[in-house]
Design a protein around this nucleic acid. Sequence first.
RNA 1: GCCGAUGUGGCGAAAUGGCAGACGCAACGGACUUAAAAUCCGUUCUCGCGAAAGCGGGGUAUGGGUUCGAAUCCCAUCAUCGGCACCA
Length: 890
Amino acid sequence: MSRERRKPYPFDQFEPKWQRRWDEWQIFHAPNPDERNFDPAKPKFYILDMFPYPSGSGLHVGHPEGYTATDIVARYKRMRGFNVLHPMGWDAFGLPAEQYAIKTGQHPAITTRENIARFKTQLQRIGFSYDWEREINTTDPRYYKWTQWIFLQLYNSWFNPETRKAEPISTYGGEDRNSVRLAYVADVPVNWCPELGTVLANEEVVDGKSEIGGFAVVRRPMRQWMLRITRFAERLLDELDALDWPEGIKLLQRNWIGRSEGAEVHFRVARAPGLRIEEDRERDAYATIRVFTTRPDTLYGATYIVLSPENPVVDRLTTAADRATVDDYRAQVQSKSDLERTEFAKEKTGVFTGAYAINPVNSERIPIWIADYIFMGYGTGAIMGVPAHDERDLEFAREFDLPVRVVVQAPEGQESIGFVGDGTAINSPIIDGLPTPEGKRKIIAWLEERGLGSKTVNYKLRDWLFSRQRYWGEPFPIVWREGKHEALHESELPLDPPPLDDFKPTGTGEPPLAKAKEWIRYSDQATRETNTMPQWAGSCWYYLRFCDSKNSDRFVGEEAERYWMGNSIAEIGNRKAESKAAIESFQNPESEIRNRPGGVDLYVGGTEHAVLHLLYARFWHKVLFDLGYLSKPEPFQRLVNQGVILGEDGRKMSKRWGNVIDPLDVIADYGADAFRCYEMFMGPLEQMKPWSMTGVEGASRFLARVWRLLMEENQAGEWSLSSAVQEIEPNKAQLKVTHATIRKVTQDIETLSFNTAIAQMMIFVNAFTNAPGKPLSAMCTLLILLNPFAPHITSELWEKLGEKFHDLRGDITAQRWPAHDERLLIEDEVEIALQVNGKVRDRIMVPMTATSAEMEAMALASERVQQLAAGKTILKVVVIPKKVVNVVVS
RNA sequence: GCCGAUGUGGCGAAAUGGCAGACGCAACGGACUUAAAAUCCGUUCUCGCGAAAGCGGGGUAUGGGUUCGAAUCCCAUCAUCGGCACCA
């Protein structure tokens, strides 16, 4: 392939020039309310990209897809008179830099600095209009100081169930504050990878193996920091409804939170010879097993109890005779990896404990088993087995010959054994004959009256395992004294990680920080916590820091937070508000706009963050909101997911397939504007779509046509403003296409339909290509409309126009977005289709003003219609003004 | 297994109850050129009849339904992608 291929237009001569100018003049800086050039009349608009991890391999074409979309909206909104916050930063703590450090000894800070520099160069080469003065980096002490500070807020607060809010720990009246803190320590099973010598996060474990290296991962209990996100489950679920997010993402979060309604039922343990429970009979806690069920109406069908093998109560009730079997089974389960334990289609396993429980409704003695299909982490770690109406219980009962008792009558024609839907209660004296929902209500009431159970809601969401045994993360601002943890004082932040030469994991599960003997020693009696925070910590609140990234007194200034994270004055999408009307409305305290949810107005990123990042960030936001630091309860008002860009072969881009496209290679050949336009022209933003180099060429050709609309080339190959561009009135057709383009592009940017906006601009350019004179007014309009998509070429052409036509003042970015005139779009006549029995048979021109009756008459006068209707009865004529007339005949 | 999204020319797609295939890619033909590239103009869903202009039939994964009219709404099936996966 010839590298010397002639450029269709000289983008290489002006793209770098404009990028330098934008950078030097900081023209995309968004002033904060306390800055001199802040204009209070402008409404705010906060447009956020998911900030990247600056990896060693640089950006790929997937990153800039979302970034280009937001950049278009940002540039458009500025021209619409908004004060636009459009920042960028680096989520820079993380495993790859640390792995690299282990291999080479190069400090992760150095690797990170280099990678950030490369990423920033790449982004600037695409011409994004970020406010670089607000750039942040999660590994910068001035940033992680506040990540640590937020952790202290979590540590020093609790969730008050009465107010349903996070409150300072000082308002907690109980004895043991450590039992309610939002950040707490617990011994929990973690994913331990012996081969890598480290603990892995769930998301780093794929099919029971480490994502990196594919080594076996085992469960092992370790002392960990946890965040009590489960207390917020209800609010995280309820407050999802009002957000303007894709329904699919909301559903993923709902499923992740996993709310289910049911009842807790208390089963007393029966006394039996040889049962250790006998020795503790006055200690009621050991004598009752609480189970969670979503089907309390099937209580009469419970023929056994199953406990999770990890349930601590197992020790207490196992009989001496069964102890060996039970211990053996528990040891077996413990050694199993998650993969082995959840392997589908496998047979149920379990053992009998020798103990029995009493069913509260019928006083029946039923055996207590343990089995690994019951998890300690959900509900109470105990269930009642109702084999007739639960698939898993049925499998278990068949495996171990336990009785199956039908208590729900299935609808006609369905087998009652194994029926899990709603039916009618039978063999259940208290609720016989009741449909399932009523049966549930009645039996719960019966249990509650007698203190044998209660209505309960359970969530699948678990508390968040927040510590990692790694070097390259935020150290916890915690010290240990005589086995007890205590928080550092705010004034001791930031707490920097220790300098280390050896980043290797210790192999024992002890974090690498433990090797820094000096650093660990806090005082004679106290030592520092050696775990570090996960990568999510920095990304949980970065959008807040962008509002006021240089503030050294606070994580975000109050005024800046109120302004940027407060109400959206105008919204992208269906509802749009002209800024003047919006401001008036905003000033009225009763207005609907003023009472909008607020937050980031548009957040664009990939679906891979559908649950974790987006859930964690909402959780932190709510805690900080409850504590009075923030003005709105939700961080991200509108969320849009961009689709994945596949390789040219239709496969996922990866080194393995050799189909990775480097944006800088594309830009070298076709320029940044063509790259941007192609990415937006490929198809709908949300859709997955394959890359096509010939498609890029098409976008490049389009821009070259725009270039030649205004520029001409002399013999020497030098370009200058075309003499065809003149201050002439556009003709009627030109005026019409101009205004149709204004309307279409404006609407399409609002709905993020960039592909069709570009198609319309292509139509515009095609319409003007062969015009002998190019009316200046129409050319100016095109340049402004195209500017958000192709900022370099339009800036250059605008400047060229300005040299000749002195009325054009200032840079193109300072221009107002044009408004279309609906009157210019109105045609005198319109072509309509004539259908007979729904098939198009003719087309005629009718005046725009034609009434339905007139259209009908014209349709019936058509020769073709008369031919086809000859000898038949006209049953009906349907007239759709300006579109179609359908004549129905028999 | 459960939940969700998607399915339209050779390709990316447009049209979300009213003329299917806008716009672009690719292909083919023409103009310009000594020639090529670039550029400009034109053709291209499919089948039948016709020398042609044209006329007619079919067509939006498959099968049904609602409607004067369906790519669009409803039901079922299939395929692809994504998420969850013994959550009681």
